[in-house]
């Protein structure tokens, strides 16, 4: 996946202006999808549009190759510190799996 950087802050989404320097120039680079589970929750009660897949896990992944996190969905049980990677993109969501 791609990350954007300005003033040492890396984010997954490109912003219009850097909150630190106000600049519009962002460096971007491709990084590996792999990362480590920073934290997670198991969602039992889901909004209407996700009710059919509940329970599912929403997992905040600390990416290995950037100072940046990504919010993902997983179907298998996880714990903090597990190694994970991208399984597929599905309707705009990053679906991750354990490695």
């Amino acid at each position: 996946m791609k990350v954007y950087e300005c003033c040492g802050v890396e984010t997954l989404t490109k912003k219009y202006f850097c909150p630190d320097c106000g600049g519009e120039e962002f460096a971007d680079r491709e990084i590996s999808d792999s990362g480590t589970v920073y934290s997670f929750t198991k969602i039992h009660i889901a909004p209407a549009e996700f009710a059919h897949i509940a329970p599912y896990y929403v997992v905040l992944v600390d990416l290995d190759e950037a100072d940046c996190k990504v919010t993902t969905r997983m179907l298998e049980e996880v714990k903090i510190g597990d190694s994970v990677t991208l399984d597929k993109l599905e309707h705009g969501a990053y679906i991750y799996r354990k490695v």
Binding site: L12, S39, F40, T41, A46, T71, G92, A93, Y94
Partner: peptide
């Protein structure tokens, strides 16, 4: 309009993620 919403994150979901890290 984000990958977070698409992942199925909810309000109690956010605070669940926060709580598990807080415990840790």
């Amino acid at each position: 309009i984000t990958n977070e919403k698409s992942a199925g994150l909810t309000f109690p979901g956010f605070f669940g993620v926060l709580a598990n890290r807080y415990f840790y």
